[in-house]
């Protein structure tokens, strides 16, 4: 069932953690397919395994069982090294707490992922300027993270996530730490990235209001995907 339009396909994925002698089964038999250009909200109560699933999709963690294929690459078979390389080209990350590097300016933070590509300094600066203008932060690009508001930091983080033109964008509670207006802003931005630039986005949230901004929704409950809701 190969499909050109399929960008993500998760097959019977299991994941558990070991704490002391105890085994915590976090994800149970997860299967999911996503088309190119989708904007998916992954919802569910706290502790249901949303972040865990997102980390697996983003290649930050290894599955116990099952396969995850992204844009034709089965990432569950990649070595740690290849996975790191794959991430740098294919995944853009947006975190709840922005996670900008405090000692770098907004501009430098956005430039960071490009250091791992073979781009020249000039090319890098062009890419960074473009990404920063997408998020409307041109006038603050010399500021350090602690000189920016949460919403502004998140916009810079989004610029950092899109600067390498990744295959998918993953966002873990991108509005979780923001007030309503800033959150609205960020969601508008993500919507634009999805509609205008055709970015595939997977967003974890437990806020139904934020989830509604996505174009599709999946519910996780106690490690099981619930398609019916």
């Amino acid at each position: 069932m190969r499909n050109e339009d399929l960008i993500l396909s998760i097959d019977n994925v299991y994941k558990s953690y070991h704490r002391d002698s105890q085994i915590i089964r976090v994800l149970e038999d997860i299967s999911l397919e996503l088309k190119r250009g989708a904007f998916l909200a992954l919802m569910g109560p706290s502790g249901s395994g949303k972040s865990t699933l997102l980390n697996l999709i983003a290649g930050l963690d290894q599955v116990d069982q099952g396969t995850i294929e992204i844009d034709g690459v089965n990432i569950t078979t990649l070595s740690e090294t290849d996975l790191a390389r794959w991430r740098s080209f294919n995944v853009g990350f947006i975190f709840q707490f922005y996670n900008l590097i405090p000692v770098l300016t907004a501009f430098e933070n956005v430039e960071l992922p490009l250091l791992l590509t073979g781009l020249s300094k000039r090319e890098r600066q062009e890419h960074v300027s473009a990404a920063i203008s997408v998020v409307n932060m041109e006038d603050r690009d010399g500021h350090y993270p602690n000189q920016l508001s949460g919403g502004q930091q998140q916009r810079v983080a989004i610029a950092r996530a899109i600067v390498t033109d990744p295959t998918i964008l993953v966002a873990d509670e991108p509005t979780g730490d923001l007030d309503r207006t800033s959150a609205e802003n960020v969601l508008d931005l993500m919507d634009r990235l999805n509609c205008d630039l055709g970015k595939t986005i997977i967003m974890v949230t437990h806020d139904p209001w934020a989830g509604n901004r996505a174009h599709s929704m999946e519910h996780l409950d106690k490690g099981v995907l619930n398609h019916d809701l």
């Binding site: 983003a58 930050l60 090294t81 790191a84 390389r85 991430r87 740098s88 080209f89 990350f93 975190f95 996670n99 590097i101 960071l112 992922p113 791992l116």
Partner: peptide
């Protein structure tokens, strides 16, 4: 961890 996420080795 963020740097590693971005693919730093």
């Amino acid at each position: 961890a963020v740097l590693k996420t971005l693919g730093f080795r």
